[in-house]
Amino acid sequence: MKFAIVVFPGSNCDHDAYHAAKHVLGADAEFVWHKETDLKGADVVILPGGFSYGDYLRTGAIARFSPVMVPLLAFAKTGGPVLGICNGFQVLLEVGLLPGGMLRNRSVKFQCEHVYVRVEALDTPFTCVAASGQVLRMPIAHGEGNYFAPPDVIETLEANRQVVFRYCDARGAVVDAANPNGSTSSIAGLCNEQRNVVALMPHPERACELAVGSVDGLVVFESTVAALTGDGMLRTG
């Protein structure tokens, strides 16, 4: 199986994602420059973190018009697994694969710290080997991660169980004090209705080795392998 990691001008977590896929997981991985018009035969695509186009105008607003987004949209529509991390999440919101938008953090600060998230849905290709309610410790590094959607959209997301990760404390309790950026309903990660497009603000790719302080992000990548090799796909929960 092969990971494609899309590289926009200003991406800066592309190498972290590549390292996690290739060297930690031992999977095939390839960078795909945003001007490319195909995904190099990848089985799974990662939109990495960073500051595409310097965050000019709005986070992800310009990257979403990159040529690579055409094959990416087609890949997503046919059920191909897509993971957006941090800026990748913002790009997926701007292009409309996921609903809602990002506001400036309520602290009005760039938040760079480890946080806890609770896995809320196991029936996605990025969480299928996680335990129900599993708490993951992963780093965040963003200024615009304050997820917003109007109440009717939030209602639909909850009804469809599209909230995949929620900020919580170390014990898994979803409390306001554990919400680092003011996100509505403590939403840290979402999926689309088809459940093949998943995005989150925390960085699982930077939490895959003990040397960097946490291995909790591994479950995201291990889920992808299990989903694509048919061992763990889409348990309900």
């Binding site: 506001l103 400036r104 953090n105 309520r106 009005v108 304050n146 917003f148 109007p150 003011g182």
Partner: peptide, 13 residues
């Protein structure tokens, strides 16, 4: 501008 229903953290600050 942000819609009236959307919280504006910068404006508040």
């Amino acid at each position: 501008t942000l819609k009236p229903s959307v919280f504006d953290p910068q404006g508040r600050t």
